[in-house]
């Protein structure tokens, strides 16, 4: 086909990254990865992915920067407000029946979704009994997530989403503004554990009642999706809840029979 060389180079680059840095992107969906790697090649002033491979192997200090191209860090708080509204309406009442709660945000990136869930649980009176595991493979992104600092320009959109999501209080109750940024409350962070975890190579680490993993699976190929969904299935307790992205589903998965759809419109599933 058209860009055979590019396909070869991409495969070799991913092999090199795996062998050298033990990050496994070999099971990622190629179309968007190809696009992101072309952007990375531009950024690193490389004409080809082969040149990029050369630089990445021999200049290890560049790798964290490349990782920001390999992983997607696009999120906002309360993205798709109706998802959070559905959680409040259909999931929270059942979560109330547990004396203690564990929640896993898989692929949490820079933390916007984690704080959204923490705030939702606080507003529903459940945060005090909850521990949230927030995981990602990108340690730089995790550090940002843990800091919980966001540019003040983004807050208007966050606030709008929050109120659309059925937020009871004002979002400003949960952060302090300073020097063009906002910092989210320590009282929220107390309930969050940030940790390095790969859906491609690591295994289950806890039993959870709610697992939110939105717009992560679309970046995986079928095989890696199956692996991740297998982890989710094993990690969720019986009748536990799984939230996916607005256009993700279990339709093509062998794990589909393990779940029933609770709120299809918002991609909330329940383990049977």
């Amino acid at each position: 086909m058209a860009n055979k060389d590019l396909d070869i180079e991409l495969k070799l680059l991913l092999d090199a990254i795996y062998l050298k840095y033990h990050y496994d992107f070999r099971g990622y969906a190629m179309a968007s990865l190809k696009r992101r790697m072309a952007m990375a090649a531009d950024h690193f002033a490389c004409r080809t992915l082969s040149q990029l491979q050369d630089r990445i192997l021999h200049e290890p200090h560049l790798f964290p920067e490349l990782l920001n191209y390999l992983t997607v860090q696009v999120s906002e708080m309360f993205r798709d407000p109706s998802y959070f509204r559905a959680l409040r309406q259909s999931v929270v009442p059942l979560l109330r029946t547990y004396p203690s709660l564990k929640v896993w945000v898989a692929g949490c990136s820079t933390g916007e979704e984690v704080y959204s869930l923490a705030i939702l649980l606080r507003e529903e009176g459940l945060l005090e009994r909850t521990l949230i595991y927030a995981t990602d493979i990108n340690t730089q992104a995790l550090q940002k997530a843990e800091a919980g600092v966001y540019a003040v320009e983004r807050v208007a959109a966050f606030t709008h989403n929050h109120s659309q999501s059925g937020g009871h209080a004002s979002l400003s109750d949960y952060y302090t503004a300073a020097y063009g940024n906002v910092v989210f409350d320590r009282a929220l962070k107390k309930h969050i554990v940030f940790s390095d975890h790969s859906l491609a190579t690591d295994s289950v680490f806890a039993e959870v009642q709610l697992l939110s993993c939105r717009n992560v699976l679309i970046y995986f190929n079928r095989e890696l999706q199956e692996r991740a969904l297998g982890l989710f299935k094993d990690s969720l307790c019986r009748r536990g809840f799984l939230g996916l992205g607005a256009r993700e589903s279990l339709r093509f998965s062998q794990h589909a029979p393990a779940f029933s759809s609770l709120v299809w419109e918002d991609r909330i599933f329940q383990k049977v």
Partner: peptide
């Protein structure tokens, strides 16, 4: 394939993104 990558030229979906990846797959 779908992606939630950042908007391109303020657009998501982006025409450029579709066309470039289709050109890569379908060629002539």
């Amino acid at each position: 394939a779908l992606s939630a990558d950042e908007p391109v030229l303020f657009s998501r979906p982006s025409i450029d993104v579709l066309f470039e990846s289709a050109a890569d797959t379908y060629g002539h």
